[in-house]
Nucleic acid binder design. Structure first.
Lengths: 218, 218
DNA sequence: AAAAGTCTATTGCAATTGCAACAGTTTGGA
DNA sequence: TCCAAACTGTTGCAATTGCAATAGACTTTT
């Protein structure tokens, strides 16, 4: 895992990164599969970058249940939101699903002005800001989808976003149909039923995960 | 409107702010009620701070309709997400609802390291980061609410969040009941009906906007 | 090669929901 | 003060949806 390929260190050379990590007092932790790496919700926070292995971010419900929030592959970053927010009453778990190496950087070090060495410090800050902003945009899009009243509207709204992103009326879903149902928070069988009706009505063409919208009659 | 009272400049003295604004090449624009201040979605972006007046952020739908995203009071900030995101294919409007004064700062200046003067520059960056992160947390909470399948679950989920925030089983809704229905994306009358049922079932007590949850039997 | 797990697909049925319509109350301006 | 606009409250009805159950296809692991 080259850190220079991660979203956090994008645009910074490997040598610069090495110098910055020293300056930031970054530290690497190792853990085994099944370990709970962190619980968030209190104390001075740190941002984590997964160097190798696999992590999942889960949310602790009041009733003790857990909800999967995110799955992280090497290069992924976590804690960037909670670390910088002043709200953050959530309690979250970071769980390892494989032996993992994680690099931690205290958020205070990222923000603090540093006197020497780190010429690329401002680039790092820009990257963090971009990461958090991107997440906000993704969440806003999902809210837009979820705010539709019917499954049909939700699907059309989501497909519209996908088509805009692909720049074409035809695109492939990034997830399984089951995943799509979860994304739009609808029952999978009800969604399949509605998809069928929409196909009949000529609102979409589907071929597995390949979706094609009809030409706009604008 | 004192800039030192805004979330963006929190913790920075008025004199420091004056110096920073010069350093950032900040500029003030004035506009009349009804003016479209900005359309986002392209070009080098700027962050705007409303000094006086009233603004609303609206989203342009494909069909030409508009959705209200946010209403801004003096001290409010806009553009902080789109300015820093790399996704951002949205098109948004900023519309004035009263004669307004708006301070614009190019995002590039906020991020750029500045050689002299701005000792509090890093505090400003921290504030931006906190603003964006807070917004992310709020959006995540709303998604959590919207991901519930039934109106009853949505309400209980939302009330749970409110109670946690208030630190008490009793709290006052920040919006009207109509606003609440909009927040949970449900039909108002259906929500009223369900609220009635929940009252009967002893799941909540309501008195106008005052909500009280029963003691937890955990 | 078998097994376990996930994904796709379909259907009946009961429950929830959106919609439309109406009426009384409160709020904020003109 | 009076009017308009927004908010609260309620109901019938049709449509959508979630849930449960079932089954075949596909993947990955053992």
């Amino acid at each position: 895992m080259q850190l220079s390929n991660t979203a956090l260190f994008q645009g910074i050379t490997q040598e610069e990164i090495a110098r910055m990590l020293a300056c930031f007092h970054a530290r690497t932790e190792r853990c085994a599969a099944g370990d709970t790496v962190r619980t968030y919700g209190h104390g001075p926070e740190a941002v984590g970058i997964l160097k190798s292995g696999a992590l999942s971010i889960e949310r602790m419900e009041l009733d003790g249940g857990r909800t999967l929030l995110e799955s992280l592959a090497p290069g992924g970053i976590f804690g960037e939101v909670l670390a910088f927010s002043s709200l953050a009453h959530e309690s979250m778990l970071v769980v390892a699903h494989a032996p993992s190496e994680i690099l931690f950087i205290d958020y205070a070090h990222i923000l603090k002005r540093c006197e020497k060495a780190c010429a690329h410090h401002s680039l790092l800050v820009r990257n963090v800001l971009r990461l958090v902003s991107d997440k906000t945009v993704r969440l806003s899009e999902r809210i837009e989808v979820l705010s539709c009243r019917t499954i049909r509207e939700k699907l059309l709204c989501y497909f519209g976003l996908c088509a805009a992103q692909a720049g074409a009326r035809s695109f492939t879903l990034p997830t399984s149909l089951s995943g799509l149902a979860e994304y739009i928070c609808a029952d999978r069988s009800a969604m399949m039923r509605e998809l069928g009706r929409m196909r009949e009505a000529g609102l979409v063409q589907t071929e597995g995960r390949r979706i094609t919208l009809p030409e706009k009659p604008f």
